[in-house]
Amino acid sequence: MLMSPIPIVEIQNVNHSFGSGRLRKQILFDISTTIQPGEVVIMTGPSGSGKTTLLTLIGALRATQDGSLKVLAQELRGASESKLVELRRNIGYIFQAHNLLNSLRAWQNVQMSLELHSDVSKQQSRAMAEEMLASVGLAEWVNQYPNELSGGQKQRVAIARALVSKPKLVLADEPTAALDKKSGRDVVEIMQRLAKQQGSAIVLVTHDNRILDVADRILHMEDGYLSSLDVAAL
């Protein structure tokens, strides 16, 4: 039998509902999929279909209610809060809004992500942060505060923050939604390039059809049901 690598994410028959009693509303229905190391997966689908909900489940930001969800070989269903927090440190998040800390300079924002990894010394982590900012094209901007940067620059700082600790999995939820076409494209390409270099898998939610070409695989969410689209067919 062929030895396949251990998947980064393994989702089996996951259901998810919000609310309780009569207000209970099921959002995700019987989701199953796996994501391999280094794979770039794009998830599309109409607004309100449950993409963000699935992403927060994979990101250990929400408790898994039903089915089985393994991330980095760790079962999330029934895992303790402390285990979830631990796991989050090994995932890079990129949000629609950049969500940078306004009181911190660009390099400090990036360093915040490294501080959670005790194996990195302080001097080392500052150097790593600046290096990472350089590789997203912000070498000149390391000392800027977020409000001194443009939208695209902020999002690139956010990418640097998500990737600096070399996570095995990067989750991005419409990272280009607030950006113009050009900088949106730049941001996605930077993300893809770095993830490939580091061997990180990416799950990227987007509405933007022009960036689908960076994907290895495309998933489509519709009314809480997940289906695969054939990349070759696009």
Binding site: G59, L61, V85, E86, L87, R88, R89, N90, Y93, F95, A97, N99, L100, L101, N102, M112, S113, L116, R161
Partner: peptide
């Protein structure tokens, strides 16, 4: 004012 930032830190794995 910093609630969203704090939530971000929690998402990053801060306790």
């Amino acid at each position: 004012d910093h609630l969203a930032e704090y939530a971000t830190l929690k998402a990053m794995g801060y306790r």
